[in-house]
Design a protein around this nucleic acid. Structure first.
Length: 473
RNA sequence: CGGGAUGUAGCGCAGCUUGGUUAGCGCGCGGCGUUUGGGACGCCGAGGCCGCCGGUUCGAAUCCGGCCAUCCCGACCA
């Protein structure tokens, strides 16, 4: 029952939180997971925030099929090369072998661009701003619940634009106004937004942008990506439009996605030795009420609890009136499940006209008068959100380093200390050297490269970028 | 896919070395009672193709082979 300490064994801690908080468990098929109600409620809360922002920025939802003719994948060279090794293939159907195998989508650029060919004729058809919520399958070598499963849930946006500038602006807008905003405002997790190096790019992309969050073990997690695909997919799938200038042209593409991996990020960015700490905006239950009573007081207490719950309006409240567990058990269980606020209500409190409020983030308990509860609870939730973000931000600052030498860089990276920033000359050789020695990669380069002073921390040549390295998931 | 480990009740494990009759323990689960302000206790009870397939043997949880799954470490990745 006791959770391993994060500092003793972070992977074991993670796994037991996922299981203990009843978020998910392994399924019978290799590498796939069953998402349990509490975990799925979290995902639904995440979806709702992402979906709202996708729609607010002018996109519509669509749905493309799970199965894709294999020949479609083969049309974009880099894309095939990147994905072919991890694609699951359907070879039989209806009891017989298929003429042409179907792949289970690892991502949907292929089928979507093959379809866009029919939808796009003129610049008047552009832009196409579509998104879909879907499951995809990638045959990963090694899987971990939420962080990397063979099947995962995500949204994938696929847009087509008249000009490169417009597509580039779209990719960037999604990264900042949808992904960064969601993760910072809903998850209370600060992120670094930036560009990926060539070696970390999405197969078929000209530029990959990403947000990176720091986990409590000092590793980085790529929390969302947005790609500028140029005309690669348009050319591969024969998508052309008649431009304003009367000439045929290929549209410019973007694609972008966030997945159930975000749930893993949430666990590892905020959790502590007692379990999950859910940010109030995503918590399936924002408040759990634990009634405390002896038999003869049961009726009175439960009535008061019901009244108090009703007085909290839109706040998502769970009343834990299970008879089979005593309060101490419930306290521990809801702390493991990360509920932001717990209200303890017993005869002593009712006599005093108050309740005890416990906040999961700091562990503080305080008495709140019943009369001020309807405003105190929302205030408390707002404060918990701020304080979660703040402490994640402080953790990141404390775990961001600027080494003065290559030896210092590799020391920091080898020990998995967090983000390590330094000048980079832009050469893949220097990037590889660090990776070979420490397994750390460049997580992001600044979104807008400004003139970089100083030298490459690896080779000493003049630096052209400020790179952020880290060990990553 | 390479290296290592594991698979026995819902969960965590013992038993296996040295094959033998009803396969154990803790937690959890069901009933009854006492409890309830930081993981309660007593009594009674239910629950097992010992991961799967095959082999050796009079007899296999135990020995042998194959397969599958999970975990850890690498290479691949949202």
């Amino acid at each position: 029952m006791a959770l391993p300490k994060q500092s003793d064994d972070f992977p074991a801690w993670y796994q037991q939180v996922v299981k203990g908080a009843e978020l998910a468990e392994n399924s019978l098929a290799r590498g796939s997971m069953v998402i349990r109600p509490y975990g799925y409620a979290l995902w639904e809360a995440i979806q709702s925030g992402v979906d709202r922002r996708i729609k607010r920025t002018g996109h519509s939802n669509v749905y493309f099929p799970l199965l894709i003719p294999q020949s479609l994948l083969d049309k974009e060279a880099d894309h095939v090369e990147g994905f072919a090794p991890q694609v699951a293939v359907v070879t039989h159907g209806g009891g017989s072998k298929l003429e042409e195998p179907l792949i289970i989508r690892p991502t949907s650029e292929t089928i979507i661009w093959a379809t866009y060919a029919k939808w796009i004729q003129s610049y008047r058809d552009l832009p196409l701003l579509y998104n879909q919520w879907a499951n995809v399958v990638r045959w990963e070598m090694r899987t971990r619940l939420f962080l990397r499963t063979s099947e995962f849930l995500w949204q994938e946006g696929h847009t087509a634009h008249e000009t490169a500038d417009e597509a580039i602006a779209e990719a960037r807008m999604i990264l900042l106004d949808v992904y960064r905003e969601t993760v910072e405002e809903d998850f209370a997790i600060p992120v670094l937004a930036g560009r990926k190096t060539e070696s970390e790019r999405f197969p078929g992309a000209i530029e990959t942008l990403a947000i990176e969050a720091l986990m409590r073990d000092g590793k980085a997690l790529q929390a969302g990506t947005s790609h500028y695909l140029g005309q690669n997919f348009a050319k591969a799938y024969g998508v052309q439009f008649l431009g304003r200038d009367g000439q045929q042209d290929f549209p410019y593409a973007t694609s972008w996605g966030v997945s159930t991996r975000l749930v893993g990020g949430l666990i590892m960015a905020h959790g502590d030795d007692k379990g999950l700490k859910l940010p109030p905006r995503l918590a399936p239950f924002q408040v759990v009420i634990v009634p405390i009573y002896r038999d003869e007081q049961k009726g009175t207490v439960l009535e008061a609890v019901k009244r108090i719950s009703d007085s909290l309006g839109d706040v998502r409240v769970k009343i834990d009136d299970r008879e089979e567990h005593r309060p101490g058990y419930k306290f521990n269980e809801w702390e493991l499940k990360g509920v932001p606020v717990r209200l303890e209500i017993g005869p002593r409190d009712l006599e005093a006209g108050q309740v005890m409020a416990y906040r999961r983030d700091t562990g503080e308990k305080s008495a709140v008068p019943l009369t001020s509860l309807p405003s105190a609870v929302p205030d408390l939730l707002a404060d918990i959100h701020r304080s979660l973000f703040q402490s994640a931000l402080e953790f990141r600052s404390e775990h961001t380093f600027a080494p003065g030498s290559y030896a210092e860089l590799t020391d920091l990276l080898s020990s998995g200390s967090g983000f390590v920033q330094g000048g980079w000359c832009g050469s893949p050789e220097c990037e590889d050297k660090v990776k070979d020695q420490t397994k750390a990669t460049i997580r992001v380069l600044p979104l807008d490269s400004e003139a970089q002073e100083g030298h490459c921390v690896v080779c000493g040549s003049p630096a052209i970028e400020l790179a952020t390295w880290a060990q990553s998931y």
